[in-house]
Design a protein around this nucleic acid. Structure first.
Lengths: 193, 193
DNA sequence: ACTAAGATGTTCGAAAACCAACGCACTGTT
DNA sequence: AACAGTGCGTTGGTTTTCGAACATCTTAGT
């Protein structure tokens, strides 16, 4: 039931080729022939794995989205406490291996496949759920605050993807101030923390 | 007549695996199973390409030796002039792609396969030929001077392999002084240069 | 409107790689 | 001496990949 090693290898090669090509060309400009040439796979093999280059992109985005979703869901509860976001720091640690891939895919914005947008959506959903359970009634509109929290975190994530995780320390104070301000809208009792 | 892409890929994978393993273990400690596991190739495929791990090492050494030999032979005549060794600088430029591989293989010293020793031997042969044609009669023993020249160059090569090519500039003066002293033994007429 | 070039997606026989299994040799227990 | 453990090298049937060919489809040039 487990996959043949050859399948794993060709999919790895094809996806690596796609990522490398994306550093040079636009997704639209990339041809299936380009991918095959760089990955040393034959045309027919490519189509044995993917319907077309859109399907390929789709599966890549789906893969990283799944990982992200799992990690977010696991860690979301730890978010409130801790300096900067324990969540964000944890996520970046979890995805250290895939950082290059994610950074590259973040530059691709196709209607069918958009990793950045997907991450944003997943994060927003968790925020909404979080607010609903923690503070059912709020003075400020819940959706607004959820959007705020999401955007703050996304900003940190993207910044760390570009500049490296360690660089988080540089902006920790600034981000913390903002984070606390957002959380204050949800849990006013946290003032004295 | 040209090789199937699949052969190229598996040989590439196997050789990369060998190099990566050599950064961790001794050549003796490495097993065929290790290589197969890391390169994602099956045991039977390995033996379809190589007799055993010694044969693999052998072919890798042979490959880089061939390249080295060609480059040395092409460039040896340009050696005398130019600051530091035009030869050495040229060689390092030619082999920039393979620098990591060569640096790793230089740490392996098996009686049947020793890249460092092979490079040394090839270089020495060129020096002997050079002296024979340029200065058939010399006061100092030709073999001694050939050995000197070879060792000076090998030292620079190994130093550059470790520290990067640009770092040659740092030691250029020192090496040049020595190089000139060696060449003076061959061509006393160069005093005034 | 015609053509040439390049890209897509499919088909099929041949070549290569996989994998599970086997026998063998060597080493270190108990 | 029997034993398990590990590494070597080989075998044969199965699966995957390759390569070359083919029929579209789009796009640019004359």
């Amino acid at each position: 039931m487990t996959k043949d090693v050859r399948k794993i290898k060709t999919e790895r090669d094809i996806q690596q080729a796609m990522l490398r090509l994306l550093t040079t060309k636009t997704f639209r400009q990339i041809t299936v022939a380009d991918i095959c040439q760089l990955s040393l796979t034959s045309r027919s093999t490519f189509y044995a794995h993917y319907l077309d280059k859109y399907d390929l992109l789709d599966k890549m985005v789906a893969y990283y989205s799944t990982i992200f979703n799992e990690k977010v869901h696991d860690r979301f509860n730890q978010m409130i406490d801790g300096e900067i976001d324990a969540l964000v720091r944890g996520l970046l640690a979890d995805m250290a291996d895939n950082r290059d891939a994610i950074r590259i895919l973040f530059t691709v914005h196709e209607p069918e496949a958009d990793l950045e947008a997907t991450f944003h959506r997943l994060l927003l959903k968790e925020w909404q759920q979080f607010i609903k359970s923690e503070a059912p009634t709020m003075t400020a509109p819940a959706d607004l605050i959820a959007a705020m929290g999401t955007n703050v975190q996304m900003t940190v994530i993207e910044w760390a993807l570009q500049h490296g995780e360690t660089s988080i320390d540089v902006v920790a104070d600034a981000v913390n101030t903002i984070r606390k301000a957002v959380l204050l809208q949800i849990k006013p009792t946290m003032k004295n923390k």
